[in-house]
Design a protein around this nucleic acid. Structure first.
Lengths: 88, 88
DNA sequence: ATCGTTTATCGGCTATTAACGATAAATAAT
DNA sequence: ATTATTTATCGTTAATAGCCGATAAACGAT
């Protein structure tokens, strides 16, 4: 896990809303964008962009099924991330 | 450790240079701004700002001694941070 | 084929970030 | 008192982030 990707993940988590999103994703395992929109006081487009950022960092993956996209935490990446932090 | 502070630390680490700075600070325990300037291809003011960001997040503290400022990782905050990540 | 549902993207706006050089501030040494 | 050293801050510029509403795109169901 190189510095660039690490920084990217840190950056992706560098926003309170995205921290809460990832906590939520870990809690409920998988989740659709619309559900998250309902939790937060932001528009659908804003939440979609937050999810995109998380996805682009690699910590979250999204699978398209029909009109919905199911987001979930990429456990492999998360574990690498945890491992890095633990060795700090 | 609330979401706001967490996000602040994540954000502070959300830049490759700052990741490297904190790795360096952990390696050598304590460090003066000028040393860090010598490591990176950035100006003194840029590095000083990166250090300020890290300091403002709480993960790093700086002690002024004479004209120098000694930066070091705040181990209490780092441990809280590690603990949070581990429980993800 | 049309409509409803869901998500992604575009354009626009404002605020923040990242970088720099220049300057100020603080101290140590001469 | 002056100079050298070290760091912080200011002002600027370009780029990025965060938010929104509007629109497009993809699919399922009617």
């Amino acid at each position: 896990m190189d510095t660039e990707q690490l920084a990217k993940i840190f950056k992706a988590l560098g926003h309170p809303t995205r921290v809460k999103i990832i906590e939520h994703l870990i809690d409920i395992n998988t989740c659709v964008c619309g559900e998250i929109v309902n939790i937060f006081p932001y528009s659908q487009s804003t939440i979609s962009q937050h999810l995109k950022l998380l996805k682009d960092s690699g910590i979250v993956c999204g699978e398209i099924e029909g009109p919905k996209t199911y987001f979930c935490v990429d456990k492999i990446v998360l574990n690498k991330f945890k491992h890095y932090i633990q060795n700090l």
